[in-house]
Design a protein around this nucleic acid. Structure first.
Lengths: 216, 216
DNA sequence: GTATCTTACGGAACACGGTTCCGGTTTCTC
DNA sequence: GAGAAACCGGAACCGTGTTCCGTAAGATAC
């Protein structure tokens, strides 16, 4: 039931880079990177593509067998490359999460802190609601998703904290708000935002942000 | 995979009443209530108690077999009395949901509309966060939980709408807010509010409510 | 180019939880 | 007390996540 989270790649730099190689290149990390076999690299890339496609149609909780079938590989191959589903999800969405994280400072530099915060939160919400089931899984406390929580939080909470601090320093929002709590709340509000036409997460998140402003 | 939701009891009056009988009494519904056998009534009551106990310790998504074991009955007995897990959950919490629903008009009569709304939402939040996993299951879109959604929404959305209308009429909040959306949002914010000391759903819900006030 | 060794693969097998089936038992009615 | 109907328990079934193991593919040495 419990799995040790293999954290070989320390959740820092991509793993699904523009050159298509995942671990194919000579890293400078102590020379302990034995360069994977060619078919392994090929399969990892194929799996990422297949997973991305299946996630779009069936959500991030699609059966492992479906992803394997789509990629034309056996199920064990998935587990070999991505010991937990969290790691697969992270690998698929890493680009977009990184982009979101990097947008924070950029927004802060280009407008007022409160507007920057609002726009950045909107970016995050847009990302979440377009990923079928991702918000729900982000909230899940099942073992195996720890790495997913950790990645999202590690990457985004500091950015959010930066924006919050700036807005608080500018006197636009109440101080003392916790970035972690805000991110969780926003994430929660995005759960089920697809597949329910009567529920608009963006509207509620706007209310939440509005509620953070100083009374007048 | 899919189950037809048996809706014999139209989600109106208890089923777990103060006399302990569930369907043991002569109802006035066309004389079509054949009075269940004694062991059936006994088991239903036992199951409700067992489920309530297991829900407290293991959450509302506890394995069916655990509940059956605790009640000392076979699993099929659960399915006979509660064809879907939703119906079991509804039966267990019906009293509290009813109490919450009835508190709405009472609050409205005793204070200002906005205060009443705030206090009522707090009641709802308190209810949800103390029921391990209930908020999450309330949001789940798995087949079989339809009856649970329907019950909560049917029972609570009208109450919430009443409070919203009153507050809007008093000019205390922006008008046009949808009660359904608000309930869903509040429910979502309660997901995972247990088991995470850094996340306080009440605080976020307060922000949300604050964001609904008219700008000044 | 071939032999050998290592790495990775695929699918069967296992575990676990929800759901259904069926032979047997309890309760009700007369 | 006897027969009929309702109800029960647990085994069986099914879908999904996870692991195992015999085999194939790639890398390396010659």
């Amino acid at each position: 039931m419990f799995r040790k989270i293999r954290n070989t790649v320390p959740v820092g730099k991509p793993g699904y880079g523009e050159d298509g190689t995942v671990n194919g290149s000579h890293e400078a990390t102590g020379g302990a990177a034995p360069r994977k076999r060619a078919d392994a690299r090929r399969n990892e890339r194929t799996l990422l593509d297949a997973a991305a496609a299946v996630f779009v149609t069936s959500g991030v909780e699609a059966p492992v067998r479906d992803i394997a079938a789509r990629a034309g590989v056996g199920v064990a191959t998935i587990y070999r490359h991505f010991p937990t589903r969290a790691e697969l999800i992270i690998a698929v969405y890493r680009h977009q999460v990184e982009a979101c994280a990097e947008a924070g400072p950029a927004l802060l530099a280009s407008t007022t802190p409160h507007a920057a915060l609002g726009r950045w939160i909107n970016l995050f919400v847009d990302f979440l609601v377009t990923k079928h089931g991702l918000a729900a899984v982000l909230r899940s406390d099942e073992a195996g998703f720890d790495a997913l929580h950790a990645y999202f939080l590690d990457r985004l909470v500091p950015v959010c904290a930066r924006l919050l601090d700036a807005a608080a320093a500018a006197g636009e929002i109440r101080s003392g708000l916790d970035a972690y709590e805000l991110m969780r709340g926003v994430g929660n509000l995005c759960i089920g935002a697809d597949n329910d036409p009567r529920y608009d997460a963006r509207r509620l998140v706007e209310l939440l942000i509005a509620g953070m402003r100083v009374p007048q």
